[in-house]
Computed example of a mutant assay.
Amino acid sequence: MTSDVELGHSRRCVELAAEALRTGDEPFGSVLVASDGSRLAEDRNRVSSGGDATLHPEFALARWAAANMTPAERAAATVFTSGEHCPMCAAAHGWVGLGRIVYVSSAAQLAGWLAELGAGAPPVRMMPVTEVVPGLVVEGPLPDLADEVRELHRRFALRRD
């Protein structure tokens, strides 16, 4: 269960997702938080703006953590994110040894929303993070914020039509 402080980190992820949408990108945002609760790094999706389909915020944070944190610091950290990691990002998370993940909306929710919106499936199968990184502590979805994320995805899908 997430605390009020952790809910604040999750709200920041939704703000970053909204920022991504404003710049024409898919609405995803993530925050890397140290064991003491301090925010270390944050990012938003940059796929459309950069032309590189791997520019997901979770992947960027995993790379940042690998370059800037010790293995023990990475293991004690938490990644907060607006949407459950895709398999690529989950693998990066696992390979660099990051700790817990807290997500606002699940891969299953996103798949359902995309189907409802007629937006089509992504090129990579969506699955729970723990299918890629077994034993990882994962919390989510967060119902208090998931509707906001759904609305961001709805607005993105409408732009594509």
Rank of each mutant, 00 (worst) to 15 (best):
E15D: 15
A121D: 13
E26Q: 07
A107Q: 07
A41M: 09
L145R: 08
T54E: 09
E148H: 13
A60W: 02
R46K: 11
D36Q: 07
G99Y: 12
E73K: 14
A90T: 01
V96D: 14
L117W: 05
P134F: 13
P27T: 01
P134K: 12
S105F: 01
E84K: 11
T130S: 02
A146F: 04
E139P: 03
R160I: 00
G94S: 03
F80M: 11
L32F: 14
V33M: 06
G112S: 04
N45F: 06
R160G: 00
A20Y: 10
S82F: 05
C86I: 05
L40T: 03
L145Q: 05
V133Y: 09
P143F: 12
G37M: 05
G120E: 09
V138D: 02
L98T: 02
S106C: 03
R46M: 13
M1N: 12
S3Q: 13
V47C: 03
T130C: 00
P27H: 06
D36T: 06
H93M: 07
G120N: 08
A60G: 12
V104A: 10
E116R: 12
L40P: 01
S30G: 03
L142D: 06
P123Q: 07
G37K: 05
L7E: 11
W95K: 12
W95M: 10
F156L: 04
V47L: 05
R100Q: 15
G29R: 08
A65H: 04
S38T: 14
W64Y: 15
H85A: 14
W64M: 01
R46H: 12
V33I: 14
H93F: 05
S49A: 05
V96S: 07
D36F: 06
V33S: 08
G99F: 09
W95R: 13
T23Q: 15
E116L: 07
P134S: 11
W95N: 13
A18D: 12
A77Q: 08
A62K: 04
A65E: 11
L136H: 11
R150W: 10
L98W: 01
A77S: 15
A18S: 02
E73V: 06
A72E: 15
V102F: 10
A121P: 04
L117E: 10
M127Y: 00
R63E: 15
T81D: 08
T23I: 09
H153A: 01
S35H: 08
R74S: 10
V137Q: 13
L32G: 10
C89T: 11
V138L: 07
E131L: 02
G99D: 02
L114R: 13
A72H: 12
A77V: 10
S10F: 10
R160F: 00
R74H: 04
R159T: 01
H56V: 05
R44A: 10
S3I: 11
L142E: 05
G120Y: 09
P122T: 12
L61E: 03
D147F: 14
E116M: 04
V31S: 13
L55C: 06
P141F: 01
S106I: 00
R125I: 04
V96E: 09
G120I: 04
A65L: 13
E116V: 03
M69I: 06
T2N: 14
G120Q: 09
A90K: 00
T78E: 09
P71T: 12
S106D: 00
V138T: 06
G51Q: 07
